[in-house]
């Protein structure tokens, strides 16, 4: 068994997948805790759909898809926040409207352009085992920026997550913090699309956070446990996917779900 694992680690594509997966798993877990607590879990789904449209746009015009997707998804994330803040549209509805805009644009572009169906398929379902060196460096670099930003603004993010008005009375510019969360979420979503695909990316934000919230007593502890569960799921998911020759994105998500179901089961039994 150990020999098989060591053998796996000899492959450079496995090394790239594991390194990128660990960074992105950490990123999604930490950001996911803030989003789940703010009841914005589905923003991941909505922005993933927008990234579908943005990636299709990039492919249609022959531009590097992630170069198009990152700014467009950031704009979409900010648009959702603005709609929630300044109109009477609810959060769920705002996410749904932006999400529909993104996916319908993507479908029309894919249909009109033709020719890039295979590329779009890879974005829909993801394949971390096919991650290139450039994508790995991009994932590490952007993850570093996002994680550093979270570290510097950590207490402001926690306060806004608990209660936006109280944070405002403490002199925190809550509009800046909201915008920051939107930008960080957008970058994280686009980066994670390669790992698990548009269809499953929101699960990386929601499931580790939801698992950790079942078993943690403090905020710091929740972040640590969500990160641990997420990274473990990524590592196990990649190895299982390679050994069984099944899609890695779905395997990572199912491993996460396995942890969640186990934790929830133990919690329900111990509470009864």
């Amino acid at each position: 068994m150990i020999n098989t694992l060591l053998e796996l680690l000899q492959y450079s594509f496995i090394q790239r997948a594991l390194i990128a997966g660990i960074f992105l798993g950490l990123l999604c877990a930490i950001l996911g805790v803030f989003l789940v607590l703010r009841r914005l879990s589905l923003i991941g789904d909505g922005l993933a759909h927008v990234s579908f449209g943005a990636l299709a746009l990039g492919l249609a015009f022959g531009v590097y898809p992630f170069g198009v997707a990152v700014p467009l998804v950031i704009v979409a994330a900010i648009a959702i926040q603005l709609m929630i803040r300044y109109t009477s549209v609810d959060g769920d509805a705002a996410i749904g409207i932006i999400s529909a805009t993104g996916i319908s644009t993507g479908i029309i572009l894919a249909s009109v352009s033709g020719g890039f169906n295979i590329d779009i398929y890879s974005f829909l379902f993801g394949n971390i085992l096919a991650i290139s060196s450039l994508e790995l460096y991009l994932a590490i670099g952007l993850s570093g920026i996002v994680l550093s930003t979270i570290a510097v603004s950590y207490h402001e993010l926690v306060y806004v997550t608990f209660d936006e008005e109280q944070a405002q009375i403490s002199g925190i510019n809550t509009t800046v913090i909201q915008t920051l969360i939107s930008i960080l979420t957008a970058i994280t979503i686009v980066l994670s699309v390669k790992m698990v695909g548009i269809m499953l990316v929101s699960s990386l934000l929601i499931i580790p956070a939801s698992s950790a919230l079942q078993i943690s007593s403090g905020f710091g502890e929740t972040l640590r446990r969500a990160s641990l569960l997420s990274i473990t799921s990524v590592i196990f998911g990649i190895i299982i996917a390679f050994v069984l020759d099944v899609p890695p994105g779905a395997t990572i998500v199912l491993t996460n779900i396995g942890f969640f179901a186990t934790i929830l089961g133990i919690r329900l039994i111990s509470d009864s």
Partner: peptide
């Protein structure tokens, strides 16, 4: 909200 009492009270220092 998953905060310990100390973590929660610490938020009051941000002002």
């Amino acid at each position: 909200f998953p905060a310990t009492v100390a973590e929660f009270v610490l938020l009051g220092r941000l002002s």
